[in-house]
Design a binder for these strands. Sequence first.
DNA 1: TATGACCCTGACGTTAACGTTAAACTTTTC
DNA 2: GAAAAGTTTAACGTTAACGTCAGGGTCATA
Lengths: 170, 170
Amino acid sequence: MPVTTQPDPVLDRPDAAAPATAPSDSGIRISDAAARAGVSARTLRYYEELGLLTPSLYTAGGERRYTDEDLEHLARILELREVLGMNLDEIREFLSLETRLDELRATYRATKGSTTKKARTEQKATLQEAMVLNESLAEQISTKLERMDGFRAKLRHDAQRCRELLAELD
Amino acid sequence: MPVTTQPDPVLDRPDAAAPATAPSDSGIRISDAAARAGVSARTLRYYEELGLLTPSLYTAGGERRYTDEDLEHLARILELREVLGMNLDEIREFLSLETRLDELRATYRATKGSTTKKARTEQKATLQEAMVLNESLAEQISTKLERMDGFRAKLRHDAQRCRELLAELD
DNA sequence: TATGACCCTGACGTTAACGTTAAACTTTTC
DNA sequence: GAAAAGTTTAACGTTAACGTCAGGGTCATA
């Protein structure tokens, strides 16, 4: 037995639609996953330890197997780290809120409006929380963008002065 | 004797023009400088240890005194750290190149074109180096700006979906 | 089925960027 | 001019995010 997934991994996908290209399945090993993402295997184990990225498959022998979905998740983590400069704790917070939003949307679609008042207020609370974090993040990003843009302008100005000096030197 | 600056600190400024507001002079102590910049005194000592920021004054007793100019320099360091996410080594490299450019401009103006060929080729080399670093930095910033902007767009989209859901919940 | 290539789980090591503390010295203030 | 407040150097401590290594299993392939 190669893999310890009892339910069919294709028919049971959270997203009902069949994937574009049938996955070569059973996932890839950790070193390959790491190489594709440009990180080390140790990093993947560490992220798992922190609860950031759990491979969706394990072999019977206990080896990690990563799916394409896992790799996408990893890419999101790395984007938050590299582009936004978040530390791993902030990333976990952000991702957990994202997950809760997804769940909320799922249950919302499932119950289709016929929810109790209690459930509805809870959903509202989650949505509010999401909005708050979203807006605070967007604001931080905007100010950072402005400052970076200002810096870039200074760089351009400096470059111009360099060019002028070079020109004067014939 | 309060300060160990033999020449007059006002008349001997590198920039000949008199400062807009006569400085209350003799500089501020380390903890005040740190507080103004929003960092710790330890950080200032550490930056000095790394050669990033040397206070322009010392009391006879050996205490650091920071001038407004020092604080501006510190602000630049912090901008490189916070906005661009540079580490302290990268910051030092960048600042040292900036300093060399300033020196180059100074000697250029001083000699007013009457330089030897050897000196001129050296100046050209420095300018080229500066341009290379400048462009590489500008490029990095641009790609980072794009990715951050993309992320912000995703956030906006998410926020919109949240608002729609909230509206549906009446 | 053997064997080389991988992987597992500890566990300790590393680096950057400071934090903290101690013991002695300066500066300021009353 | 003496206490209070602040500073100095030196040295060890801390945290995040992994690196590295040992000892022992697992996988793929010939």
